[in-house]
């Protein structure tokens, strides 16, 4: 992975404090900057704080719902990738096209890092500052 000019920004949106804490620990590195959101409102303000490369989004954070959250991400950070996490076995079919990846909880540390690495590597980096 080529060293980015600035750390990649990841937003962790999950209403479970422990889950957010452990994800932060898992992803913390000099090359990442992490913001947290416990609900939809916090997600929207996190998205407004500067360019975001990846959102790790729990399927059911408090707020207007998955569809609205995805729409907010697309409108505020058109280039951000979306990884949906769910306690359920699958993600409803209608969202498959509008997200980049899906992982089932509980997720392995290795698997999480692998997926995040994939998404960040292939993230479009053509945006102008």
């Amino acid at each position: 992975m080529a060293a980015p000019e600035r750390p990649a920004t990841i937003v962790l949106a999950d209403d479970d404090d422990l889950v957010r804490a452990v994800l932060r620990m898992a992803l913390a590195s000099p090359s990442t900057s992490i913001r947290e959101a416990a609900d939809s409102a916090a997600l929207v303000s996190a998205l407004g704080e500067g360019t975001v490369e990846l959102v790790i989004l729990d399927i059911s954070i408090p707020g207007p719902g998955l569809a609205a959250n995805i729409a907010a991400i697309h409108s505020q950070q058109a280039n951000a990738r979306i990884l949906v996490l769910s306690g359920d076995a699958s993600v409803p079919g209608e969202f498959v096209a509008s997200i980049d990846d899906f992982a089932r909880k509980p997720i392995d540390l290795a698997e999480l890092r692998d997926r995040v690495g994939q998404l960040l590597t292939h993230a479009p980096t053509t945006e102008s500052p």
């Binding site: 479970d16 422990l18 889950v19 804490a21 452990v22 994800l23 620990m25 898992a26 306690g87 909880k105 509980p106 997720i107 392995d108 540390l109 999480l112």
Partner: peptide
């Protein structure tokens, strides 16, 4: 959700 932080 409970198992996620434990496993990780």
């Amino acid at each position: 959700n409970v198992l996620t932080p434990i496993l990780m």
